[in-house]
Amino acid sequence: MSVLQIHNLSKSYGKIKALNDVSFDVSSGSVFGLLGPNGSGKTTLLSIILDILGPDAGSYSWFGQPSTHVHRQHIGSLLETPNFYHYLSAVQNLRVTQSISQRGDEIAIENVLKTVNLYDRRNSRFSTYSLGMKQRLAIAAALLGNPKVLLLDEPTNGLDPVGIAEIRDLIKGLSAAGHTVIMASHLLDEVERICDHVAILKFGQLITSGPVQSVLADEDCYLLNANDQEVLASVMQNFPGISRVSKTTDGLECYFKIVDIAPESINQYCFTHDLVLSKLVQKKKRLEEKFFELTAQP
């Protein structure tokens, strides 16, 4: 089942197209990474699906229904920066969150503050917090009442390496417990470690989306085809250095553990096994190249 469906969303700020005809689905239980360099439209997209920005065109739906405020109550969200009342303490701020979202209670507030290691400072005013602590409070607010869907925009912003690792474990734990997590990040490494699905945005356009291993594969992939796909698959299974093969409508995707494998050797190998290739294309770029392609200025 789809938790979130996005259809052809577009949004412009004057001449700048922040989002251009973006569509994708997020299925229930997945950890979905929204990836892209600064200014690629990630926050704009998240703002639209949280109803604080109106799209110029397109639509979206939560849980298969047109979005309402009740859906937002059931989504734990952290958007861009931690937004809290500076003069209130962590507990007092979370009471406001609780009152608006109707998620959780006093005990839940204490529990989430313990989860993000902010319990000892729970009665200090928000204005006295460091950047990392503010971020932790924002995560606590999103976690309040154990929502089924979490929407986190750059959740590790301002956190130290320990904090980043804690959040990573936290998200993995949530995923294991069946929660759906949608997170935006420009940190490729982070997304690759946590997410199972990704969508990549660049200058407001969706470059690609799908399972993380096929999008961000840190391995060489070749697309092969021959008259008999079955035979080709069984032959390629035994290729030295192969990691896996998968059949697609375009042909057979072969993933190699060896980096920089020579296409000649594949061709040679198939020929010696009485197979003539009708197609031999390098399909995916490696992670690093992908990253540079993604972040490069035009």
Binding site: R72, N83, Y85, I100, S101
Partner: peptide
Amino acid sequence: TNEYMFKTHRQNIIDGWQKKT
């Protein structure tokens, strides 16, 4: 203006209030 300064006017909506609320 406090709500605008703290951006809590956005957070209130994100957390599940309607704008009219």
